[in-house]
């Protein structure tokens, strides 16, 4: 399974976060907040990034049975961005079309996790192999 989205090139790794418990999710949100501030994102974009990350991180915990998050800074022809890659080794997504439908939820929440975070970020890609896990990549440009 291709685990790296190389479309936007290699980034500079800022932080690697484990996502195994709810506490990890709180720490990951704090880390993302810190890095997005460092990269000079506006208050609004910081809020959007942290909120999207919270949705995606919760997916990793609840559906992916835990995983990890890679935070990196990317630079594409002088355009700077923050890239988040969420990986889990859970059961994967069987019906991608359904998972990407607004309002569809399998557990708690409002069913806005994937579609909502897609709206909040600039780039969004998802790869999933049933039985192998799911990788979600999102980018916000500064």
């Amino acid at each position: 399974m291709a685990r790296e989205n190389l479309e936007f090139g290699d980034g500079v790794l800022l932080q690697h976060c484990a996502l195994q418990t709810e506490d990890d999710l709180v720490l990951a949100r704090a880390a993302i907040k810190l890095h997005s501030t460092d990269l000079g994102f506006s208050k609004l974009n910081q809020t959007k990034i942290v909120t999207a990350a919270s949705e995606l991180g919760r997916n990793v915990l609840e559906h992916g049975l835990g995983g990890h998050l890679k935070i990196d800074a990317i630079d594409q022809f002088g355009r700077k961005g923050l890239r988040l890659i969420f990986e889990d080794n859970g059961p994967g997504i069987l019906d991608m079309e359904l998972a990407l439908t607004d309002g569809y939820t399998s557990k708690k929440g409002l069913g806005l996790g994937l579609t909502g975070s897609k709206r909040l970020m600039d780039e969004f890609s998802i790869e999933s192999q049933p039985g192998e896990g799911t990788t979600v990549m999102v980018i916000k440009w500064t």
């Binding site: 609004l44 910081q46 959007k48 806005l112």
Partner: peptide
């Protein structure tokens, strides 16, 4: 509620 949160929530769909 901070304005940034209001905008983000609306975009998210809450």
């Amino acid at each position: 509620m901070q304005p940034a949160i209001a905008i983000t929530m609306t975009e998210l769909g809450i």
